[in-house]
Amino acid sequence: MPHRAADTTPVIELRNVTKVYGHGEAEVRAMDGVDITIESGEFVAIMGPSGSGKSTAMNMIGCLDSPTSGEYLFNGVQVAKLSQDQRALLRRNYLGFVFQGFNLLARTTALENVELPMIYKGMPATERREKAREALAKVGLSGREHHDPSELSGGQQQRAAIARALAGNPQVILADEPTGNLDTKLSVEIMELLKDLNERDHITIVMVTHEEDMAAYAHRVIWMVDGKVERTGTPEEVFSHGRQSA
């Protein structure tokens, strides 16, 4: 995999990032001087109460949003200096998204959904189909290639979405509440799958969640409150601190 950086440059580095929405009275500081560094191969969970800025941080990392001030370096590259199209290319080649609501295209088969990122890469159809099958097999969806999302269970839909994220051969998977719409049993399956991808394929995973059980799969938890990083550490450290203060 060519984009595995051999040096020690962090994959993701937010430096004093501030994001302000609105003006004057209606001004909202969604992120307020946030520093986050994520190394290649890490599995990080971003947590916090709603309105803490964790989703904004996720969008920022996914190059879907840009900071009001501060810097975001992806593999050492200033994202703010990239054009709209270059950011699309960055998402296409280095990032994979997994959403709470799955966000599969309706009335489109699992296989075609997984092919989507590769279409934009301009990959020939046969190669694309082959890779999509492989990705679906990896998430345990062999035999469901031609099912529409409506014919798949929630857990299967999320697996298809993960397969789609994998299909782009990403360096980082960004998962926004990936288990938010699933019951405990399915949630565990999805988390095991993500953990597997992290351990076996060395894909960096950044996940937003509000469930401690899910965050426990991560190496590190970043706890945000009011747009600021309040503390960071292993799940045990962060949660025990939370319980003490509660």
């Binding site: 879907l64 709209q84 699309a88 966000n103 599969l104 295209l105 989507l116």
Partner: peptide
């Protein structure tokens, strides 16, 4: 709109 959002997220450029 949502479909367009998904496409943009998986790496479609505005021109695509």
């Amino acid at each position: 709109t949502r479909e367009i959002g998904i496409r943009l997220a998986v790496g479609a450029t505005g021109n695509q």
